[in-house]
Every structure is written in C-alpha cells, then in structure tokens.
Design a protein around this nucleic acid. Structure first.
Length: 611
RNA sequence: GGCCACGUAGCUCAAUUGGAUAGAGUACCUGAUUACGGCUCAGGAGGUUGAGGGUUCGACUCCUUCCGUGGUCACCA
C-alpha cells in the first residue's frame, strides 16, 4: 500500500509540474513522531529540476493531493518535507494487507542459497564466538528462505591436522582408557581437555629445553640485538616444536601415519571424533540449529590440486625454483600467495578453492555465503580473487559474511588465559536465570513442570540470542554476561512478553482467531503508527537479506513490541467502546503477534504461550 | 611499517543509506500500573557523532589529513 501512495505522489508531480521524477529520487518515509502526519515526501530532489522553493513545491503538491487523492486526508509542509495524513479507508485496507497469512515472505524463486557457518575444530568445545557465528548463519538461512530461496546449511568440520593429533597423543599418554561415559563428561569437553593437557606437557618440555646448552646456543645465535629470552622463545615456539621437541616429533609422526591411513591411528581418530560430534550435536540441539550436510576437512584437504595444474597452464599461477606454486595478486593490490607447498601438498586457500568447486558441481548454488570472523577478511579476498581469475562461473556469487569478534568487559577472550566463555555453560546459565526470575515472580502456576522448563529454555535463550544478534554483524561487540541475562528493556524476553500478552488477551476473549471487521472504522494515532510499522515488514526482510544483516530484523521486532506495549497500556482492547472497535483491535493485535513471532523465528527465537 | 575494519550519551547499541531538533536500552532521579523491589507505561537528566579541513539546499553518513582501537601481513587452518 506504500506503493499505492508512491504512485499517487508520482502522479501528482506529473499533474502539477508536468515532470517525471526518477524512482530513486522518490523518497517517501514514515513521518517522524514530532510532526503531524504518517508519511513524508522529501521535496528537495524536485528543487533543481523545477527551479522553485521546496516549501512552495510542497504546498502545491499537498493541495493537489488533498483535493484529488482518494487516500490523502490532510497535509502540512515543514521546510522541504511534505507530511501527509491518510484517511481511514487507507488504514483499513492497509491493515487487511498486513493481516494476510503470507504477508512478508516471498514465493519461491527457484534459486539456491548456501551458507557455511559454525565450522568448529574438533579439539575445542564451542564458545561464545561460535554462538555469534551460528546465530548469524542460522538467521541468514531463515531470512533467505523467507525471501524465496531454497537454502542449504553447511559447516566445515576441522577434524584433521597436527592439532587433532595433539589431543590424540595426550589421550594415549594420559587418558588411562577413560571415556566420556566413564567420566560423565560431554564428549567435546572431554577431548578438549586432552588438547589442553598436551599444551601443558609441551610447555613444560619447552621451558626445560630453554635452559639446556642447546637452547641457550639457539638463543644466542638467533636472537636479535637486545631481544630478551622471553620474547625470543615466544616467537620460536613453532620452530622448536618442529625441530627439537620430543613430543612434537611424536605428534608429527602420528600425522604422517594418519595420512598413510595407519589402521591403529585411524581407529583412535574415529573414536575420539565420535565423542566430539556427539558433544557438538547436543550443543546444536540446545541452541535449536541444524545443518543439511557437513564438509569434513579430512575429506577435502586434498582438494584443489587440479586447479593448480590448470592455473599453471593458463598462467594464473607460477612455480618457484623450490617447487612451490604461487599466484601474483599485486594487480589487485594484494601480495603473492602460495597455493601449493614445495612438497606438493595443499594449503588453506587451495582446500577452499577445491571445496567451493565441489559444492558448485554438486549443488549449483546461486549464492554461497561464508560466515567467518573478520580476522579472515584477507583470506577471503584472496580466495575470491583466485576463483575469479580461474574463471569459475560462480566466482561472483560468493560472499564473506564477516563479523567482528566478541570481547568481554575485561577485554579479549584468550584461550591461553582461560577467559573463553564456553557455549554450554552460557546456555545453562541463561536458562537458569530465566527459571530463577520466573519462580521469584511466582508465575507459571498450574502448568506442568516440563512445560515450565520449555518456557525457561525459550526465554533464557532468547535473552542470550537477542543480546548477540541485535548488534550489526560487522561491528566488534562487547558481551557482558550480566546484561545478556537481562529481561527488561531492549531484550528478547521483552519482545516475547508482548507476544504473550497478545495470547493472553485471546485466551480471555475466548477466541483463537478473529477476522477483520467490515464496518467503516476509525483509527487513532497509536493504531496508525502500528500499521505503518507492520507495513514495513517486507522491506525489513528484504533489506536484512540484501545487507546480510539480521540485526535489522532484531531492531524492527523490538520497536514493534515497544509500540504494542504502549498501545496495550493506552487503549482498551477487550473493553473497547464499541464491538467493532474491539474486533478491529483484536485483529490488529493478532497481526502484531504473528509478525512478532515470525520475525523472531527468523532470528532463531521461539515464542512461549505464557511467561 | 603496508593493507583492512571500527570510533555516536557513563556503559551497551540505533539512526529508513545524504534528510527535519542524532534516537533506544541500561544505570541514576520522579511518577503511573502491579497479587510484585526486580519481564509493563510515562517523564527528567545525560551529545561539539575521536579532531581538523572539504563537497551541498542539507553530513554520523561521501572525500581528505591526522589521532586512537582492533585485525592481518605463515610452505597453520
């Protein structure tokens, strides 16, 4: 119906000024609340073309519209802004449009949208950073679906490499045959603890070595002028691991065995991975997310090599004397980048080249979105540039949804300092807070315990999820655990509360659903404002999709909930002055409830019936 | 140091993409509502949008120079 108004305005410009305003200059937006009217047309773009003052243009258009338009009831002009008030007929039909079942979502467009997110390592449990990643990926998937796409959700599981061998070695050395079952530990945490144990053993060995003759000799011959031992050895760690460390040598030997598919190593690897996957599955389930398929690095790490031959032939790549293969990206303002080691094995980008190609072969997706933190911006610039140069047909359809890292009030999360916030702990904590708050209020009586727990889960998770998803993805954010469990103000539970109020009204009214009354109706300012907001929902959905930004929806849901709370407070719904007014308000509330529910669902949050 | 982000109320975040007097939440103060100190509503106070210059009817937004914070510059993934 906004289109309706835009058409009327466009027509008015043609009639009054005999001028065609290009669509991108036709700016119509909701009127700011300190002014009279509901929609505002900005006249400045007309000024140059028509060589007249903005106020005069506004007056002329307003007068014309008031006299001739079927929907404009009044107008006023402030500077170059033409504020229009619309009549009840307009609002009535607008309300019936937003009340349609399919309002907001778009029909299938036959295109495929693939999104990769989460992508954990098998030697560490999921943490707060993964939660931001998962929420973004999951939301984008839902949003794409609402915009008519067929969606494929995927994750890359980093299940191989030297790091994985570390936890295997540590379990062999220290595990004494223990298992997650025998210790009552969640599998991913169980394996993660051995990874940590490995690092401890290694650090101890490294420290001791630094005092040996050999260590001292390395220091004095390689350290830079004036560099102290601490700084030097910090930077020398990888080299030590590869050249001197005993446990390092064993780890590397295991990796070689793994690559040679040594049965014993593979069996151990599969066993430990199984524990981890079970743990991840539990966490995903609790968070309410799932994937359509997984890419395992153990299966993709050899991919991409065929590109190298091809690229060498076409001159995209070049070979160095030591046998390594490179690409020169200077013309794209980047550096030279290695794509194949001198021993002929793939590196990170090469694997990603292969994986992208494989995905396209299999799914022919129209969009492929990687949800990965912004520390990898450069990697994805390189990856996309290479695919472009190789002439891959999907190269232009790739997007890196780059998001800022999550900080704590105390600063950065550092695994070495033990300040990483564990995902499972966090989820339990927010659910616990929801339970506590509810019980202290003494609500939820007369509901079964299982149902209560289900409500605490929904409420607690929405507090956590909303706190994270409301922030623009590209910005680095601060996560304050105290604020994340808040349920007042701009929070998930506040929005849920609006929904619950609506459900409670309907329970009291004794009906499940109402139709829009047909009698001529009047609308007050609060109602008009709500309809304006509801009308924006499709644009919000589209914008969130185009900008890869779920926070737009989060902020929208909040303002809608806020307007409803105010409406609820100021206007009687069940005790409205007339029966038709009551029906109309019920219908409006019902529509708000359904849009609140569907918009929150896009962000991975569920609505409770009570709270 | 090169390159890339970011910088808005004490704190956490917005700002319809270049539009009106930069808005919310939180914390603080006041009132309403409440079976309720603590999931609701209203009001108050809180700002030179990091700094300077430029572009124009109009700049938080675009250009430019500084300052600050973070990231990245591996034959790790």
């Amino acid at each position: 119906m906004l289109a309706n108004l835009q058409a009327e305005i466009k027509g008015a410009i043609e009639q009054v000024f005999d001028y065609q305003l290009p669509d991108n200059q036709l700016i119509v937006s909701p009127t700011k609340k300190e002014f009279e009217g509901e929609y505002t047309f900005v006249t400045f773009p007309l000024v140059k073309a028509l060589k007249n003052k903005p106020e005069v243009l506004g007056e002329q258009m307003g007068a014309y519209l008031k006299a001739n338009s079927s929907i404009v009831s009044d107008f006023n002009v402030v500077k170059g802004f033409l504020n229009l008030s619309l009549n009840d007929g307009f609002w009535s039909s607008a309300l019936s449009t937003v009340g349609e079942d399919t309002f907001g979502s778009r029909p299938a467009n036959g295109k495929t949208f693939m999104v990769e997110f989460s992508s954990p390592n098998t030697n560490k449990p999921l943490h707060l950073g993964h939660i931001r990643n998962i929420l973004l990926g999951w939301s984008m998937a839902q949003i794409a679906e609402a915009n008519g796409y067929k969606v494929i959700k995927t994750q890359v599981i980093n299940d191989r490499g030297i790091a994985v061998c570390k936890s295997m070695i540590a379990w062999q050395d220290l595990g004494e045959g223990k298992t997650p079952e025998s210790t009552g530990t969640k599998g991913d945490h169980f394996v993660g603890s051995y990874y940590v144990a490995f690092e401890q053993v290694f650090q101890k060995e490294y420290k001791a070595w630094q005092e040996t003759e050999q260590g001292q000799e390395v220091f004095s011959s390689l350290a830079k002028e004036g560099q102290d031992a601490g700084t030097f050895f910090k930077g020398y760690k990888n080299k030590y691991f590869n050249e001197y460390s005993a446990i390092g040598a064993r780890t590397k030997e295991m990796l070689l065995k793994w690559e040679a598919e040594d049965p014993e190593v593979i069996t151990l690897w599969k066993k430990m991975n199984g524990w981890v996957y079970e743990g991840f599955e539990t966490t995903y389930k609790k968070l309410g997310v799932n994937f359509d398929y997984n890419n395992y690095e153990s299966e993709t790490y050899l991919l991409g090599k065929e590109f190298v031959d091809e690229g060498l032939k076409s001159g995209v790549f070049y070979k160095k004397d030591d046998g390594s293969t490179w690409i020169d990206l200077e013309s794209a303002k980047m550096d030279h980048k290695i794509v194949l080691r001198s021993d002929g094995t793939s590196v990170y980008v090469t694997q990603d080249l292969g994986t992208a190609h494989q995905r396209y072969e299999q799914y022919k997706m129209d969009h492929l979105v990687y949800v990965v933190a912004d520390e990898q911006d450069y990697h994805f610039k390189v990856l996309f540039e290479i695919l472009k140069r190789l002439g891959e047909p999907y190269a232009e359809s790739l997007y890196h949804l780059s998001y800022g890292m999550v900080d704590l009030p105390s600063g950065k999360m550092k695994s070495r300092e033990g300040t990483v916030v564990d995902a499972d702990d966090l989820v339990e904590e927010v659910i616990g807070e929801a339970r506590k708050a509810s019980q202290e209020r003494g609500g939820l009586e007369g509901i079964s315990t299982e149902e209560q727990e289900e409500i605490y889960r929904k409420v607690g998770l929405s507090a956590l999820k909303y706190f994270i998803i409301k922030v623009n993805p590209k910005k680095r954010m601060t996560f304050d655990p105290k604020e994340s469990v808040d349920m007042q103000g701009q929070t998930g539970p506040y929005i849920q509360n609006a929904f619950v109020r609506i459900q409670s009204i309907f329970r009291k009214a004794g009906v499940a659903k109402v139709d829009q009354p047909k009698d001529a109706l009047e609308f007050n300012n609060l109602e008009r404002d709500l309809i304006v907001q509801l009308s924006q929902y499709p644009h919000v959905l589209e914008e969130a999709f185009n900008k890869y930004d779920p926070s737009i929806i989060a902020n929208y849901s909040y303002t809608l909930a806020k307007s409803f709370h105010r409406f609820y407070h100021d206007c009687r719904i069940l005790n409205a002055e007339t029966e038709s007014l009551k029906q109309n308000r019920l219908y409006l509330s019902q529509t708000i409830g359904s849009i609140l529910e569907s918009s929150m669902q896009l962000l991975g949050m569920e609505m409770p019936e009570y709270m």
